[in-house]
């Protein structure tokens, strides 16, 4: 395969994951050399908005009807679609208050100005299209991005961690912020890849990378309640980055509220 034709796009979000690509300063020339970047609206003008793509990287969540249109068009154009960042993979911050009706939120936040745009409950990309590879993180980790690009160039999918932050935390031998400091840590149910950055500074994991596969949310909630955290605080932390994830379905929240 020659240089793959690549597009890098953003839906609704802070564009931090596209920025994380630009932040690969030492490797940027290698990336630009290895990929035929056809369009990257955030970083360059004059992109090709119609050509077929081998790989498209998409950050942000689907929050507006135009996001859904763009996403579906990108899916049609690309052989492989890669979701980058927790918004694209799990809904991210925009989805944290989806239990409140959209119109009510819009009125509260934007007042009369909210009339000029449409918005729907924020969702991650896989709710609309097939996603071939998910690189979560808020923002994504540079190492995972580079490993993913290298694997894709090799015609393969990367092997990203699908174990919990606790594993990386223990590998680095950081004191447990949950057991030793009694902090509200989501390390046991959050997917690794950050090398336990927050615990390395004595801070709890707030779940910014989204849930690990088969996250045992019920047990985590029980543990946190036993530590004396209120359901209000637990719920807020669980909902912050990945509220639409299946493991945070309503049942968990009903159980948690009643227990």
């Amino acid at each position: 395969m020659g240089k793959p034709k690549v597009g890098i796009y953003g839906l609704t979000g802070c564009a931090g994951d596209q920025l994380a690509i630009l932040n690969c300063e030492d490797e940027l020339l290698d990336i630009a050399g290895a990929l035929d970047i056809k369009s990257f609206p955030m970083a360059m003008s004059g992109g090709d908005e119609n050509c077929p793509l081998d790989i498209v990287f998409v950050d942000g969540a689907v929050v507006q009807p135009k996001d859904e249109e763009l996403l579906k068009r990108l899916r049609e154009r690309a052989t492989l679609l890669v979701a980058i960042g927790t918004c694209a993979v799990w809904g991210g911050l925009p989805a944290m208050k989806s239990e409140i009706a959209r119109e009510e939120l819009k009125r509260k936040v934007y007042g009369r100005a909210g009339k000029i745009f449409d918005t729907t409950a924020p969702q991650h990309l896989s709710r609309f299209v097939k996603v071939d590879l998910s690189i979560s993180g808020c923002p994504i980790e540079k190492e995972q991005l580079l490993q993913s690009v290298a694997s894709l160039l090799h015609g393969d999918l990367p092997r990203l961690p699908n174990y919990a932050v606790c594993t990386e935390c223990k590998m680095a031998e950081y004191p447990c912020v949950l057991l030793e400091k009694g902090q509200l840590c989501l390390g046991p149910i959050t997917v690794a890849g950050c090398k336990a950055r927050c615990p390395s500074y004595g801070q709890p994991c707030i779940g910014c990378r989204g849930p690990v596969e088969e996250a045992n949310v019920s047990s985590e909630v029980r543990v946190l309640k036993e530590k004396g955290f209120t359901w209000f605080d637990i719920q807020n932390r669980l909902r912050t980055f990945a509220a639409p994830a299946d493991c945070f379905e309503d049942k968990i929240f009903k159980e948690g509220a009643n227990a």
């Binding site: 174990y163 606790c166 594993t167 223990k170 590998m171 390390g187 019920s218 047990s219 543990v223």
Partner: peptide
């Protein structure tokens, strides 16, 4: 199985 978080801590330590 219901309590275990599969967090890997026991194996690491």
């Amino acid at each position: 199985g219901q309590d275990c978080l599969s967090c890997g801590t026991c194996s690491m330590v």
